[in-house]
Simulated assay, not measured.
Amino acid sequence: MARARIDEAVGLQTAREFAAVVGEKADTSALSRTTRATAVRYLLQALSDRAPGASVEVRIPPFGAVQCIEGPGHTRGTPPNVVEMDASSWVAIACGIETWHELVEAGRIHASGTRADEVARFLPLIRVNA
């Protein structure tokens, strides 16, 4: 069964709302959990649309995870290529506020596996004026 998709207009609106707070370096906990979750899941959906496949898993706990990027996939256990970060970091790179390199250098992205860095080729997913 296919996972329900987030409506484009709703996803863009919540991503922009979350990105505005991230861009101001404000406390994102003031946003509702629903707004944060919808924005993160919409941006994960956009990543899986742009980079279909199953060779890298991108995790944004506690909101979601997707497999993306063509190549050998995995079916059981921990995947060999994993990217994990918090929601604010994900929104920052997915919306072009910060770069992959900046967040890796700051220790805000945890990437393991030989293909994990390939995610950077597909970012940003959207541009916002934050």
Score class of each variant (00 low, 15 high):
residue 2 A to D: 15
residue 4 A to C: 12
residue 5 R to V: 12
residue 5 R to A: 14
residue 6 I to M: 05
residue 7 D to R: 09
residue 10 V to Q: 11
residue 12 L to H: 12
residue 14 T to I: 04
residue 15 A to P: 12
residue 16 R to G: 10
residue 17 E to Q: 14
residue 17 E to G: 08
residue 19 A to C: 14
residue 19 A to I: 13
residue 22 V to M: 05
residue 22 V to D: 03
residue 23 G to N: 06
residue 23 G to R: 07
residue 24 E to P: 00
residue 24 E to L: 13
residue 24 E to M: 11
residue 25 K to E: 15
residue 26 A to C: 02
residue 29 S to W: 09
residue 31 L to N: 12
residue 32 S to Y: 12
residue 33 R to A: 11
residue 36 R to Y: 06
residue 37 A to Y: 01
residue 38 T to Y: 10
residue 39 A to N: 07
residue 42 Y to P: 05
residue 44 L to S: 07
residue 46 A to F: 00
residue 48 S to I: 06
residue 48 S to D: 13
residue 49 D to Q: 07
residue 51 A to Q: 10
residue 52 P to W: 06
residue 54 A to N: 13
residue 55 S to P: 07
residue 56 V to K: 05
residue 58 V to G: 04
residue 59 R to P: 04
residue 61 P to N: 10
residue 63 F to Q: 10
residue 63 F to L: 01
residue 71 G to F: 07
residue 71 G to R: 14
residue 72 P to A: 15
residue 73 G to A: 11
residue 73 G to S: 14
residue 74 H to N: 11
residue 75 T to R: 09
residue 76 R to H: 15
residue 79 P to Y: 01
residue 81 N to R: 09
residue 82 V to I: 10
residue 82 V to W: 02
residue 83 V to A: 04
residue 86 D to N: 07
residue 86 D to K: 00
residue 88 S to K: 08
residue 89 S to N: 08
residue 90 W to H: 08
residue 91 V to L: 09
residue 92 A to P: 00
residue 92 A to D: 01
residue 92 A to N: 04
residue 93 I to T: 04
residue 94 A to H: 10
residue 95 C to H: 03
residue 95 C to W: 07
residue 96 G to K: 10
residue 96 G to D: 12
residue 97 I to V: 14
residue 98 E to P: 00
residue 101 H to S: 14
residue 101 H to G: 06
residue 102 E to H: 06
residue 102 E to D: 08
residue 103 L to K: 15
residue 106 A to V: 02
residue 109 I to V: 13
residue 110 H to E: 13
residue 110 H to R: 13
residue 111 A to F: 02
residue 111 A to W: 01
residue 118 E to I: 02
residue 119 V to C: 07
residue 120 A to H: 01
residue 123 L to I: 12
residue 123 L to F: 10
residue 124 P to Q: 05
residue 126 I to R: 03
residue 128 V to D: 06
residue 130 A to M: 00
residue 130 A to N: 08
